[in-house]
Design a protein around this nucleic acid. Structure first.
Lengths: 145, 145
DNA sequence: ATGTTAAATGCAAATAAATATCATTTGATA
DNA sequence: TATCAAATGATATTTATTTGCATTTAACAT
């Protein structure tokens, strides 16, 4: 039974990339913050605790690499920076975001009604669909008052 | 029976904003390019044909204003800039995007199965949902070959 | 173990999109 | 037609991200 970390190592090896300390440490930050939607700057700050010598450019490069390897995926909450979250292979496809239009808070919903929808869209269009992304906009509990 | 343009004028007046030539011309660009997803730079280039004196900052400011007035809405195709499309009041809510992961082409789907989904999500979470946004990722007809 | 080599890093400089500043102009109303 | 807040254009600035390059390091072969 392969852990998430084993998968990272295998994916890196398969593509001829090296498993560096920096990549380990960045990976750990995502493991330790699975409920978060981290920006490059936030990752940088957290990584510096364990590995102060790291450069911001390395963080950016690593995030790109991890995204390419499907280790993390990119989110967009329109707040001026990219955000990323760990791909645990269980959150994918039925894990979407609720964005509060008042305070900007983002929460999660676990729901999967979209498989039917994908089929329908594939029939109507000529696209071969492999993924979807759903965002809901509204007002969170606190901001409804 | 009120035209889209009348609505723009009313909305501006209501909030104490002025109907300037620049705003008219930018609005016309959206009317003339309803199928497009325009970036600020693209709007700027098109506007300059009719109104060469316009400044890029005015385009940015106008796009923000139009978005605030729900005259246009913002899209994100992760290509390094904001993109906008006209809100015709008919495309809203059942108009979503198919993004080709190979060539980046974006097409439209008209579909609305999400009302049920919104209800379900509202029950499960404490969010009051007012809008949703769906993107499908896959391969377009040309790139499947 | 050690040497070799391509890949990765850190730093600093460079880009690019978007925003802010401010003197000047303009649209709406009296 | 005069008034005045709002809007504009030009330019400078900010902020996120990327790039160039000399140096370091992980992976692999010997």
């Amino acid at each position: 039974m392969e852990s998430l970390f084993d998968m990272l190592r295998d994916k890196l090896k398969e593509k001829g990339y090296k498993l560096t300390t920096q990549r380990r440490v960045i990976y750990d930050v995502f493991i330790d913050n699975q409920e978060s939607h981290l920006s490059p700057e936030e990752v940088y700050d957290m990584v510096k605790d364990k590995y102060p010598e790291i450069g911001l450019a390395t963080v950016y490069r690593t995030l790109q690499l991890f995204e390419e390897l499907d280790v993390i995926y990119k989110l967009n909450f329109d707040d001026g920076c990219n955000r990323y979250e760990l791909n645990t292979n269980t959150n994918h496809h039925q894990h979407h975001h609720l964005i509060c239009m008042e305070c900007g808070k983002v929460s999660e919903v676990e729901i999967d009604l979209l498989d039917k929808l994908e089929e329908k869209v594939e029939k109507e269009s000529k696209f071969k669909i492999v993924d979807h992304n759903v965002k809901f906009f509204g007002y969170c509990e606190d901001c409804q008052k």
